[in-house]
Simulated assay, not measured.
Amino acid sequence: MSGEKDLKTLLQNMKPVLNSGEYVFCKVESLSEIPDLEKLLFFFRETEAVTVVLETSVADEWELEYSYISSWITLNVHSSLEAVGLTAAFANTLKHENISCNVVAAYYHDHIFVAKEDAEKAMSALVMLSR
């Protein structure tokens, strides 16, 4: 398994980046309802439905319902999927700032979705955590 496992190293090198755009979480019964899979940021199949995450403008174009508009922060450290404590550390930091977060651990990086209005405050908290 590639990627960093040491929590201290991960925190010191996480280099959070606020990606441009607004993102929403929507649900569909099937991916066949999606006109263009390339426009999805990601999807996750659950028992009840398929969750899709995409830019707000695309969700509006496709007339998908949503209630939460988020900003997307990427931690630019290559974290191992076996690393212990990174998610807890940044989630706890955001909790102390009263910021809700939705986390996606991809192969190379962790991605954090926070309410759009909390994006700058979340970035500041994450930068402080890495010091």
Results as ranks from 00 to 15, higher is better:
66 Y>L: 09
131 R>S: 11
75 L>G: 03
124 S>P: 00
122 A>V: 05
129 L>E: 07
73 I>C: 01
116 K>H: 13
103 V>F: 03
71 S>Q: 10
91 A>M: 06
120 E>C: 02
55 E>A: 12
29 E>G: 15
87 T>M: 08
42 F>Q: 02
131 R>G: 12
115 A>I: 03
101 C>F: 00
128 M>Q: 11
12 Q>V: 09
108 Y>F: 07
131 R>M: 12
25 F>L: 08
27 K>L: 13
126 L>M: 08
12 Q>S: 14
72 W>C: 06
54 L>G: 02
120 E>Q: 13
126 L>R: 03
112 I>H: 05
50 V>D: 00
44 F>K: 09
45 R>P: 11
85 G>W: 02
46 E>C: 03
78 H>V: 14
17 V>I: 12
60 D>H: 14
30 S>H: 15
117 E>Y: 07
77 V>P: 00
105 A>T: 01
15 K>P: 07
101 C>Y: 03
72 W>G: 03
110 D>Y: 04
128 M>T: 13
101 C>W: 04
65 E>V: 15
106 A>I: 09
119 A>D: 04
8 K>M: 10
34 I>S: 15
94 L>N: 03
103 V>E: 00
18 L>S: 05
120 E>S: 09
4 E>G: 06
31 L>W: 12
48 E>Y: 14
131 R>N: 14
102 N>L: 03
43 F>A: 13
59 A>W: 03
6 D>Y: 11
77 V>K: 07
77 V>A: 05
16 P>F: 10
34 I>K: 13
2 S>T: 10
106 A>K: 12
32 S>L: 13
130 S>Y: 09
104 V>W: 04
59 A>F: 01
127 V>H: 10
124 S>M: 00
89 A>R: 04
41 L>M: 08
109 H>G: 07
55 E>H: 15
40 L>Q: 03
58 V>W: 04
21 G>V: 02
20 S>P: 12
122 A>G: 08
93 T>S: 09
121 K>G: 08
90 F>W: 05
45 R>S: 13
131 R>T: 14
21 G>P: 02
100 S>F: 08
39 K>C: 10
99 I>G: 02
130 S>I: 06
101 C>G: 01
14 M>D: 01
33 E>D: 15
82 E>W: 15
16 P>H: 09
72 W>I: 08
119 A>T: 06
23 Y>P: 10
33 E>V: 10
65 E>M: 14
23 Y>D: 05
52 V>F: 10
13 N>G: 09
33 E>N: 12
57 S>N: 14
43 F>T: 13
94 L>W: 07
58 V>N: 04
8 K>E: 11
123 M>A: 00
108 Y>K: 01
61 E>D: 11
126 L>K: 02
103 V>C: 01
52 V>C: 15
80 S>Q: 02
19 N>M: 13
60 D>V: 10
119 A>F: 02
80 S>V: 03
115 A>E: 11
43 F>R: 12
107 Y>S: 11
42 F>N: 08
80 S>E: 01
